[in-house]
């Protein structure tokens, strides 16, 4: 392989990304906020904020609390609704010049379907991502992703209708994760995004009150990274041909490489954007350096290469070429 320069492009079975480091949903704004800080045109892609059928004002503040190695937060899915999104947010995202995934949310299967329908044929959308952490009102507000049936209903209905590839964003905190991921892909999902934030709570011991006005929120950041790696590992073993995007606590290239080795095809950078808007670039560059070091040519060469089982003791160097 000497002389072959590594490249960063990844192909998610037809959805091509210039680098494997995208920005996760809800961490990018409209594309204008980062002016002067970073050129988002060099990111691998971006997932929009989650869009619902009608505008959502969101929950009361306080909406965030920093916890050890984590950010606990919830906006209550504040968004301007699909109509305003298409009119005034999407054009700005498309202008950035990278693949745009639109995150779709809802409280019923019908809402997911209606939002997805309105996205069809719109310029500048590479894929849609179903935000299955949304509360299913039929089941008292439990997330769609917590059980197989509601998750598959949403993903199946979206996939049957959508000309755009559908990625199902699942959360690790269900015992049925692998089954749900498998069923979503059978129901038509083009790929799986793993893992969405975990439900969390933080309490102010002076006042006895939850730190978030909504009571509970969603934990993101480095705290959930090992959870995401395990989730990706388990799902990738079960459905290795389905594009898998790893998300959860990616701050540096090393974190992303772990997800790739566990079986992810690409990664999303979320919370890290808030402290370091350059993170997706640094992650991509770090992956490139790593590939060079290992004598590999593409991020796909890392996919699922984690070694499990009894290590062979042959004294070779570590890494794919070494053992």
């Amino acid at each position: 392989m000497a002389g072959v320069r590594p490249t960063l492009g990844v192909d998610l079975n037809g959805v091509r990304l210039p680098t494997p480091a995208m920005v996760a949903s809800g961490c990018f704004g409209t594309g204008r906020e980062l002016a002067g800080l970073v050129d988002p045109g060099k990111f691998g892609g971006v997932v929009s904020q989650t869009v619902t059928l009608k505008p959502v004002k969101g929950v009361a503040t306080s909406r965030m609390a920093e916890t050890p190695s984590g950010l606990l937060w919830t906006t209550g899915l504040q968004n301007p609704g699909v109509e305003v999104f298409l009119g005034s947010v999407l054009p700005g995202l498309a202008e950035v010049g990278i693949p745009v995934f639109v995150s779709v949310g809802g409280t019923s299967v019908e809402e997911f379907v209606r939002v997805t329908a309105l996205l069809q044929g719109k310029r500048g959308i590479a894929a849609v991502e179903a935000n299955l952490s949304c509360p299913d009102l039929e089941r008292g507000g439990l997330p769609f992703s917590s059980e197989l049936k509601p998750a598959v209903e949403v993903v199946g209905a979206m996939s049957r209708l959508s000309m755009l590839p559908v990625f199902a964003k699942l959360t690790a905190d269900t015992p049925e994760l692998v089954e749900i991921a498998d069923a979503c892909s059978r129901a038509g999902a083009h790929g799986i995004t793993l893992s969405g934030p975990l439900q969390g709570m933080s309490i102010d011991t002076r006042t006895f009150r939850p730190r978030l006005a909504a009571g509970t929120g969603w934990l993101s950041g480095p705290a959930i990274h090992p959870v995401a790696v395990a989730a990706v590992f388990r799902v990738a073993r079960a459905i290795p041909t389905v594009p898998l995007i790893g998300v959860g606590g990616v701050q540096e290239a090393e974190d992303a490489i772990e997800l790739l080795l566990a079986g992810a095809w690409a990664v999303q950078v979320g919370t890290a954007m808030f402290a370091n808007p350059q993170a997706p670039l640094e992650v991509a560059q770090g992956i490139l350096r790593y590939l060079k070091d290992k004598g590999l040519v593409a991020p796909g060469d890392l996919r699922g290469r984690v070694r499990v089982g009894v290590p062979e003791r042959r004294g070779g160097t570590a890494g794919p070429e070494g053992g």
Partner: peptide, 25 residues
């Protein structure tokens, strides 16, 4: 207000603000 990013990305520092036309917030 408590904010995670300060850059306009995270929507955690929300303040209910009346619209200029007075119709809603």
């Amino acid at each position: 207000e408590r904010m995670a990013c300060g850059l306009g990305l995270c929507l955690t520092c929300a303040v209910p603000y009346q619209r200029v036309d007075g119709k809603g917030f």
